[in-house]
C-alpha cells in the first residue's frame, strides 16, 4: 500500500535524493510532503497525516532533534516512525536521536539499499 512520506532537510537537493532513494528502494508513495526544517514540518503535520518521516538533524530554525522532541504533542504524528538522515557520525548523536524517539538512523552518503534496510522494518512496525 502506498505511503505518505514527509521529508525534512534544509537542502532541496537532498530532499529530492531522499525521495528518489525511497522510490529506488521499492517503497511506493502516494504523496510526499517536504519541509526545510523542523518548524516547517510541524506546520505540514498540522494539516496532514503521514506514515513515515525522514528527517535531517542539522538544520536552521529547528533542528531534527528538537523536532522529534515536539512530535508527541502533534496529533497527526502519533505512532509515525521517524528515520533520521544525517552527515554526522557521532554515536552520541545516534543514541540521542533513538532515545528521543527516532526509529532508525541513516548516515550520509547512503545507497538506496541502506535506505531500504532502515525504512522497511520501520514501516513493518518491527523497530
Amino acid at each position: 500500500m502506498p505511503i505518505r512520506a514527509l521529508i525534512i532537510d534544509d537542502s532541496s537537493v537532498m530532499r529530492k535524493i531522499v525521495e528518489r532513494s525511497l522510490a529506488q528502494a521499492g517503497i511506493a508513495m502516494s504523496e510526499v510532503f517536504q519541509a526545510g526544517n523542523g518548524a516547517e514540518a510541524l506546520v505540514v503535520l498540522k494539516e496532514n497525516r503521514v506514515d513515515l518521516i525522514l528527517c535531517d538533524i542539522n538544520m536552521p530554525v529547528m533542528d531534527g532533534l528538537e523536532f522529534i522532541k515536539q512530535l508527541p504533542g502533534v496529533e497527526n504524528a502519533k505512532n509515525v516512525p521517524v528515520v533520521m538522515i544525517t552527515t554526522e557520525g557521532s554515536e552520541a548523536q545516534v543514541v540521542q536521536a533513538l532515545s528521543s524517539g527516532a526509529s532508525g538512523y541513516i548516515r550520509k552518503p547512503f545507497t538506496p539499499e541502506q535506505v531500504k534496510e532502515q525504512v522497511i522494518p520501520v514501516l513493518a512496525g518491527k523497530v
Binding site: P60, T87, G89, E91
Partner: peptide, 22 residues
Amino acid sequence: NMVAGNFKNKIAGLAEGCMLSP
C-alpha cells in the same frame, strides 16, 4: 558537507569531537 562528514567519520574520535558548520 558529505565529504567533510565522511572524512571526519574515518578518523577515530572525530565523529564525536568535531562538528560541522552549514
